[in-house]
Structures are given as C-alpha cells and as structure tokens.
Amino acid sequence: MSANVSNVLPLVGVVDVAREGRLRRSVDEHYLFVWRSLRRLGVPESEADDVAQETFLVFSRKLHTIDASAERGFLFRTATYAAMHAQRKYRRQRTLEESAALLEGDGEHPSVEEDAEREESLVLLDSLLAKLSDDLRVVVILCDLEEMTMTEAAEILSVPAGTVASRLRRARAELSAGMTRIKRSMR
C-alpha cells in the first residue's frame, strides 16, 4: 500500500495543479463574457458579480466533465440558469438607484454625458431584450453582442445553424419593431 501511496500522491498533485491552472485560465478568459451575458439576461449590475461567481462555482464542480473547447458554451448555459434564478429575486429592469448612481458619476470617467448616453442605450436595449422570448434573446446576445458566428452560437445552444439564423432574423425584426414603437411614443 505504501508503494501505491507514493505513486498516487504525486499524481494527485499534478491533477490539482492542472485543474487549478485550467480554472484560473477559464476565469481570466471568460469572466467578462459571463458577466456581460448575465447583464443582458436581466441580472442587475449590483448582482452580476455574485451570479457570475455562482456560475463559475458550478463550472468548477463540473470541470472534469467539460471539454476544453466547450467551456464557453457550458458557462453560457450555466449563466442562463443562474440568471433565471436571480430573476426570481430581483426585478429585470435596472433599479432607479443603479441608474442614478451611474448618472451621478464618480469622477473617474472622462465624460458624464457619454456615460449617461451609454446608460440610456443600455436601458433601452435591456427593455427591448426583456420583451423577446428566451430563445431569441440568447441568440442576440451571442451573435450580435458577443459577435459569435452563427455556427459558434449553434454549437453553444445545441441547435442547427439554420435555426440560429432564423431566430436571429426574427429577433432583429422584433427589436427593430420595438425601437420604432419607442420612437413613435417619444414624438
């Protein structure tokens, strides 16, 4: 048994180090992607870091079953589940406090006006995304916001590329229609 132990323990060390390295690289590479996806899936900014952390904890537990090339897809799918749970606790829309805090600015940004404009754009986009069905929303997030190809999105969503293409067309049409409605209401 001692011989077995001496053989096994170094292996355990190698496995641990490799796992640690992979986890660290994954967080470095995909944290922003997960965070941004969560935001567009309706998670408030104040909660996005926490939900991203939950996502990576699930990823860590399942690491041994995830192919290196499928990490992004796994993280996105996990993020969608996590966002769904988060939405039970928090409203989809940004809170007034969040918007106010952003508009007040903290002096670090070069232009408060630019920030306000960006914030308006995000509020507008989130309100339009909120009206889309889940199927259409995730396609917009992956293809239009994360700039993935339809093939990449299809791989992540486990649907044919043709389905992604048709959903993207529908999603864009609905977004455009929503935008037209908003413009009319502003006149």
Binding site: L32, R36, S121, S176
Partner: peptide
C-alpha cells in the same frame, strides 16, 4: 439594416464592464 440607435445600444452593451 438595424436602427442606428439599436446599433449604438449594441456597442454600449459590448463595452459594458464591471
């Protein structure tokens, strides 16, 4: 073919960071 406002919103979303 998308509305410029929508394209601007897409850009803002891509640029959003923690």
């Amino acid at each position: 073919e998308l509305d410029p406002l929508l394209l601007r919103a897409f850009s803002a979303a891509r640029a959003e960071r923690p």
